[in-house]
């Protein structure tokens, strides 16, 4: 597969919808909000020598990860159709035995700690690249995230880059109506992190922001990516109900048409 990031991101979204139209449905909203971030990370940011590490801490966006893996040839295209099926490597939350997944995730609040460990190992002499982690915004309600945030700053891990998929929703509703996260940039700054904010769907800006050197030496970086839950598919955008969807054939047709129309208009 090849093409522009825009074309890649569109194919990634198409695969997410197809997985969502399968037997089990999937976490459609949070996969779509993370689609551009993952497309850019795997296509433009993650290096192989020395290898950068990536943890998908919001493991429920597995459909987006699999869609991106298929886009870059890390798994066969057809394997996406096996999602959740007996014997498949594609679980609802990613497994380690699927190559390319360093840590299985799904239980929220682990990823930043795991990446902090990797980043520290790199600092202590390992020939390792940077440590990236993608977290959901609702996930930031887990206390262990802030345990890791404190120690990563204390250890001056400027090779650690946390990305927050700030789509402003969690299962029960808006994050700010559940347990609010704002002022989110200030909270991270107060914990000793460099903060960058970006439109998490701006494919022109994302490669530069995600791949940039740390804004401040000796500080970890958090990229707060402002996203739209269900992004790219009008009937799911910014909707609570898009959290987990099993698309009927009719809904799949509508969603796909909406995705294509949106893509055509934005060209």
């Amino acid at each position: 597969m090849s093409g522009s990031l825009t074309e890649r991101a569109l194919r990634v979204r198409e695969r997410i919808l197809k997985i969502g139209a399968g037997e089990h449905g999937t976490h459609v909203g949070g996969s779509l909000s993370a689609a551009d971030l993952l497309t850019v990370l795997y296509g433009e940011v993650l290096r192989t020598d020395p290898r950068d590490w990536f943890v998908l801490s919001k493991g429920h966006a597995s459909a987006a990860l699999y869609a991106v893996f298929a886009e870059y040839g890390l798994i066969p295209e057809a394997e996406c159709d096996t999602y959740g099926a007996p014997g498949s490597r594609l679980a609802g939350h990613p497994l380690r035995r699927l190559g390319g997944v360093d840590f299985p995730t799904g239980s929220l609040g682990h990823g930043l700690s795991l990446a902090t460990g990797v980043a520290l190992a790199a600092k202590r002499g390992g020939r390792l690249g940077r440590a990236f982690v993608l977290m959901g915004d609702g996930e930031l309600q887990e206390g262990s995230v802030w345990e890791a945030a404190m120690v990563a700053a204390q250890l001056r891990l400027d090779n650690l880059i946390a990305v927050v998929d700030r789509n402003r929703w969690q299962i029960s509703g808006r994050t700010e109506d559940c347990v609010g996260l704002e002022p989110l940039p200030d909270r991270w700054r107060a914990f000793g992190w460099s903060v960058r904010e970006v439109d998490g769907h701006d494919l022109d800006a994302l490669p530069g922001v995600l791949g940039a050197p740390p804004p401040a030496a000796d500080r970890p970086t958090v990229v707060i990516a402002n996203t739209v839950k269900g992004s790219g598919v009008p009937i799911f955008e910014d909707r609570k109900k898009s959290h987990y969807v099993k698309l009927s054939p009719q809904l799949y047709a509508r969603a796909s048409a909406g995705l294509r129309n949106r893509a055509r208009r934005s060209r």
Partner: peptide
């Protein structure tokens, strides 16, 4: 979890 990261690395 950090220790798991250290060990994996």
């Amino acid at each position: 979890s950090m220790a798991a990261g250290l060990a994996a690395a």
